[in-house]
């Protein structure tokens, strides 16, 4: 497959991830190739163990593939050093987790602020950015609460706000509604659609729910580490 440099956000080429299990290789991702363009909203689906989360982690640079080529905004990620990868990641990628993964010891405000601290953004600027975000998500009144004082939906809202604070081009979500009830889930999905449509954020989500997958522009079905089907809606 030729490399394409047009408006591709990211490009995975012949990616494999396996574990050596005695003489056998246990494949989690098996020779998978995938291109995602800027502005897409991709939902990855598939049964348990099909490699959805691993794929998402590879895209998010939290995990490295065993083989293959990985380009992100025209940068060869597979060749980058840890530090460069981390810089790229910091600037362009936001992560939302099923279990929210807020830091328990920090307030809502501080949780949202943390990524900015790691980007060495000045205090006054941080204040403005976080205030904006709180305002936009309607959680100004909750800014001094700790995660344990919030409902699941609210926590995930904070999780999304935190992922968006550094204005990422790519938002990765691993079953973002998995721990929420259906009403809360819908709200989050509506938020994602809005982000995608209005702000042009590229989103890749892993989901079990057919309904949630419908919010996106493309559905990729995985089976045993390969792409079984890719449906553009």
């Amino acid at each position: 497959m030729p490399k394409s440099f047009n408006n591709n956000m990211l490009s995975l080429q012949h990616i494999s991830k396996y574990y050596q299990n005695g003489p056998n290789k246990a494949y989690v991702i098996n020779d998978l190739s995938l291109d995602i363009e800027e502005g897409e909203f991709v939902s990855i689906m598939g049964p348990s163990g099909s490699g959805k989360s691993t794929l998402l982690n590879i895209i998010g640079m939290l995990d490295a593939p065993t083989d293959g080529y990985h380009y992100f905004i025209d940068q060869p990620v597979h060749q980058l050093k840890e530090k460069q990868r981390s810089a790229l990641y910091k600037q362009y990628i936001g992560f939302v987790f099923q279990a929210y993964h807020l830091i328990d010891e920090l307030t809502v405000y501080e949780n949202i602020e943390t990524p900015l601290i790691y980007q060495d953004i000045k205090g006054s600027e941080r204040k403005a950015l976080v205030a904006d975000m709180l305002d936009r998500f309607g959680i100004v009144g909750k800014k001094d609460l700790f995660p344990s004082q919030l409902s699941g939906g609210q926590q995930q809202l904070v999780g999304v706000a935190r992922a968006l604070i550094s204005k990422p081009k790519l938002l990765l979500a691993d079953e973002p509604t998995g721990n929420l009830n259906s009403k809360q889930g819908e709200e989050i999905m509506e938020l994602f659609r809005k982000l995608n449509k209005e702000d042009g954020v590229t989103i890749v989500q892993v989901t079990h729910s057919e309904k949630n997958a419908q919010y996106g522009s493309r559905i990729i079905n995985l089976l045993d580490g390969r792409i079984e089907s890719s449906i553009t809606l």
Partner: peptide, 16 residues
């Protein structure tokens, strides 16, 4: 450990 993981995903460097 979880906190460390989360912080890493938020862009924390080793030294930080």
């Amino acid at each position: 450990a979880r906190e460390v993981g989360v912080r890493k995903t938020l862009g924390a460097g080793k030294w930080q």
